[in-house]
Computed example of a mutant assay.
Amino acid sequence: MTCEVHFGLWKGLLLSSSRFRFLPDNDNTVLDCIRKFNFRVAEEEGRLPLWSSPPYLTVVDYENVPFATLMDVLTKPEVDVTVKCIVRVLAVSPPQAKDFCMPSESGQYRMRLTLEDPTARIHATLSGDNWVKFFGDSFSIEVLKSKVNKLLGMLDGEDSCSVRNPPWIQCCISLNSGEYRICGTRFVG
Rank of each mutant, 00 (worst) to 15 (best):
Glu4His: 09
Gly8Leu: 12
Gly8Arg: 12
Trp10Phe: 13
Lys11Ala: 14
Gly12Ile: 15
Gly12Leu: 15
Leu13Ile: 14
Ser17Met: 07
Ser17Ala: 10
Arg19His: 09
Phe20Met: 08
Arg21Asp: 12
Arg21Lys: 12
Phe22Trp: 14
Asp25Leu: 11
Asn26Leu: 05
Asn28Arg: 12
Asn28Cys: 06
Thr29Met: 07
Val30Gln: 10
Lys36Leu: 10
Phe39Arg: 09
Arg40Pro: 00
Ala42His: 07
Glu44Phe: 08
Ser52Ala: 15
Pro55Asp: 03
Leu57Ile: 10
Thr58Arg: 04
Asn64Phe: 11
Val65Met: 15
Phe67Leu: 04
Ala68Ser: 08
Thr69Arg: 02
Leu74Thr: 01
Thr75Glu: 12
Lys76Thr: 14
Lys76Gln: 13
Lys76Asn: 15
Glu78Thr: 10
Val79Arg: 14
Val79Lys: 14
Val79Gln: 15
Thr82Glu: 10
Lys84Arg: 15
Ile86Glu: 00
Val87Gln: 01
Arg88Ser: 12
Arg88Cys: 15
Ala91Glu: 11
Val92Ser: 02
Ser93Cys: 08
Pro94Glu: 03
Phe100Asp: 01
Phe100Pro: 06
Pro103Gln: 01
Gly107Tyr: 02
Gln108Tyr: 05
Met111Cys: 13
Arg112Thr: 13
Leu115Gly: 04
Leu115Phe: 11
Pro118Val: 05
Pro118Ser: 03
Thr119Trp: 04
Thr119Ala: 00
Ala120Trp: 08
Arg121Ile: 05
Ile122Leu: 03
Ile122Met: 02
Ser127Thr: 05
Gly128Ser: 08
Asp129Thr: 15
Asn130Thr: 11
Lys133Gln: 10
Ser138Tyr: 02
Phe139Gln: 04
Glu142Phe: 03
Val143Lys: 06
Leu144Trp: 01
Lys145Trp: 08
Val148Trp: 09
Gly153Asp: 14
Gly153Arg: 09
Leu155Arg: 11
Ser162Tyr: 06
Arg164Leu: 07
Asn165Ser: 08
Pro166His: 08
Cys172Thr: 00
Ile173Thr: 09
Ile173Gly: 07
Leu175Val: 10
Ser177Glu: 11
Gly178Met: 02
Tyr180Val: 03
Ile182His: 05
Cys183Ser: 10
Thr185Asn: 12
Phe187Val: 08
